[in-house]
């Protein structure tokens, strides 16, 4: 399920079945010329990743709106992420996963109230290339297995 009108209509009567929340954490910093390209690429990869997972498991996983933040400020973001999770937990979500390529979250993992899925990112490359596609598909498959282990 996604944050879309039609999906929400389907979600509301069946919410007991959709017990897993996936929040993509996406950093960006428009002040830095050299970071912008890389971050934009990683945002795209992140979206492809989470859409793949959502598509396969849409009956059980809810894909939250993306959580954007200025990069490098993970420590000050912890409480904001947690407040998102708190609000979502007012719905019957049993498992909350945070999906990110930003390694800075790893240090603050214990303070987060959701489970951090940190995946080392592809630094850059052609998003259309078959290597990137098969790599992302492969990894998405493994991430879904990890999520299933919690069910």
């Amino acid at each position: 399920m996604r944050w879309k009108e039609n999906d929400i209509k389907q979600y509301l009567p069946e919410k007991e079945y959709i017990d897993t929340l996936l929040i993509p954490l996406i950093p960006f910093d428009p002040a830095s010329d050299q970071m912008m390209g890389k971050q934009a690429f990683q945002k795209e990869i992140n979206q492809i990743f989470t859409s793949l997972i959502e598509k396969e498991y849409r009956g059980r996983i809810f894909l939250a709106p993306e959580y954007y933040y200025i990069s490098g400020a993970a420590e000050t973001e912890v409480s904001r992420v947690n407040s998102w999770i708190n609000q979502f937990k007012k719905q019957p979500f049993m498992h909350v996963f945070l999906f990110t390529f930003d390694a800075k979250w790893k240090k603050h993992e214990d303070e987060l109230t959701g489970k951090l899925l940190w995946v080392p990112a592809i630094q850059s490359g052609n998003i259309q290339s078959t290597e990137t596609q098969s790599f992302v598909k492969e990894q998405a498959g493994q991430i879904s297995e990890l999520i299933q282990a919690y069910w």
Binding site: Q10, E14, Y17, E56, Y57, R58, G59, R60
Partner: peptide, 8 residues
């Protein structure tokens, strides 16, 4: 597509 809630 599962006829329950649309998983694969």
């Amino acid at each position: 597509i599962c006829t329950h809630l649309g998983c694969t």
